[in-house]
Nucleic acid binder design. Structure first.
Lengths: 193, 193
DNA sequence: GTAATTATTTATCATATGTAAAATGATAGA
DNA sequence: TCTATCATTTTACATATGATAAATAATTAC
């Protein structure tokens, strides 16, 4: 895939949230850069303030953090996801989270300080990203509900329902921590059928 | 507290996220209404699409839902909180969640369809609410992390640290479901000291 | 003020899930 | 191809938490 094609794909995807003015779109495009990262490499290390927003074009990323030395997966981010560590992006504080590629991944990166500046001149861009973040917010609220009161098995079955491909594409240890259970427990559940 | 005072308090609080233009502020004020609800009453029942956003001025609200007939508290919303069932507000779908008063509560209500229309003319209002929602998003992400991998005791201690007053003000059954544990388990933990 | 309701704690028991370690299976590099 | 590493499953055991029911304690309604 050419850089040009990747950026077009990102812009098209972002436009699906809200179509910005022609000029806003052109300004936005100027801040898009493409990148490629190979499996298991880190796109962003733990400990830095998040100032870049990624659109995954092809591949699989995950956001993760370390809790008592253990690697916990916060989210899987497949193609056509906006990927950012929002708790850092919106607070300006250093993130304890990192972004890693679980597959070779093509992405588009947008630097957020200039992006947020663009909002002043182009309300349609602010509208667009407001909707992007609202959608992320909704996903997070729904996930919260799923974690709040489901058994390990229920959480597994829900993932199987909603993102079955993740189970093929990501190591099960990451799936386990994503579900908030141990890998042993996950293995047990999978053995049931 | 007079209606006028409540609205001023709400506007002042909202302005702390982003100061809108004078005119935007005046338009916003026109859509603010005040209300009072007594303890245990429902502000919003389960099953309706969320089209109102509340600012809690004084008192305590909670967002809750029913899971297999059991009452689960999703969040506690004390004074100076923006209260909305975002998964419905942003998707237009009916919410399975309700809003209930845990104390006599004074609130300001803002109808969202006209509010969102105001955004077209007043980007500074869109900016303001974008920041309000971003802050909510960050809280939710952090709470997700707390639920993903903490024991019942850790979650209780964290609540004790961050919102100790909730334990005095809300029935423990709601605290238990909020933490994703049973009331019996919560009682055990509390008995440790 | 008393009864009735609701909230909270305590007790007992069952079980899902965690921990640790070993066994098996898959993948990648030399 | 062989070795080394990593991923996954399995086993055995410990334990936190859930479920149920009963006992107190606190609120509310009459």
């Amino acid at each position: 895939m050419t850089n040009e094609a990747a950026i077009q794909k990102a812009l098209q995807y972002l436009s699906s949230f809200h179509r910005p003015s022609q000029e806003a779109m052109e300004r936005l495009q100027e801040y898009c850069t493409t990148g490629f990262i190979t499996k298991n490499k880190n796109l962003q290390p733990v400990g830095h303030t998040c100032r870049t927003l990624y659109v995954n074009i092809e591949g699989l990323l995950r956001i993760y953090y370390l809790k008592d030395g253990k690697d916990i997966t916060e989210s899987f981010e497949p193609a056509l996801s906006v990927v950012a560590r929002v708790e850092s992006l919106f607070s300006g504080r250093a993130s304890r989270k990192g972004i890693q590629a679980l597959e070779d991944t093509v992405y588009v990166a947008i630097s957020t300080p200039p992006l947020f500046k663009l909002f002043d001149k182009h309300p349609s861009l602010e509208r667009l990203f407001r909707k992007v973040f609202e959608a992320g917010y909704v996903r997070t609220v729904n996930r919260l509900e799923s974690l709040q009161f489901h058994s390990a098995e229920e959480k597994y079955r829900q993932l199987l329902e909603e993102q079955p491909d993740i189970l093929q594409r990501a190591p099960l240890k990451h799936v386990a921590s994503y579900l908030g259970i141990t890998q042993v427990s996950l293995s047990r559940i999978r053995a049931l059928r």
